[in-house]
Amino acid sequence: MATTLVLNGKNITLDADPSMPLLWAIREVAGLTGTKFGCGMAQCGACTVHMDGQAVRSCVLPLSAVAGKHITTIEGLESKPAKAVQAAWVKLQVPQCGYCQSGQIMSATALLERNAAPSDADIDAAMNGNICRCATYARIRDAIHEAADTLKA
C-alpha cells in the first residue's frame, strides 16, 4: 500500500505497510537515516521529526497517520531557527556520541519556532522527552539560549 506525504518539502509516495511507524518508513523506505531509533515507544525522542511544524515521535506514528502531512526531518531543516540551532550546537560543542542529537535539534527547533526567547523552564519542559545518555543537557540548554540570542540579533 502506498502513502503520499510531503517529506522535506517534496511530495513522496512511500510503498509500505500503513502500520509501519513513520520512523522506519523514513529510514528504510525513503532512505533518510538522520532520524534515529532509541526506544520505539515515545520515551526518548531520538526519532523526533516535525509534522506540520510540531515535534512528534516518529516511532509511534503509523505511516497511515501522516498521509498528506508535511514531515520535516533533520535532513530537511531549512528555517532560520533551525540553522541557528545547528550553528549553536557546533559552536558550543554539544554532541558527544551524537546519537540523540538529531532528535534534540528537531525538538529545540520546534521550540524556537514557537517561542523565540525560551526560559530555562521552557527549555526543560520542551526538551524533557529527549533523552541524552551522554547527558549533554547543560550544553543543550546553553545552545538553545545561544540560538535564541543569534536570532534576536
Binding site: E28, G31, L32, T33, G34, T35, K36, F37, T73, I74, E75, L77, Q86, W89, V90, Q93, V94, P95, C97, G98, Y99, Q101, S102, I105
Partner: peptide
C-alpha cells in the same frame, strides 16, 4: 581544538551502525 565530529553530529550525517545499508 573543536571536535572533529561536531558538525556531522549536528546535521544527521554522522554514520552509526544503525545507518549502514
Amino acid at each position: 581544538a573543536p571536535r572533529v565530529d561536531a558538525a556531522a553530529k549536528s546535521d544527521g550525517t554522522a554514520q552509526f551502525t544503525l545507518d549502514v545499508t
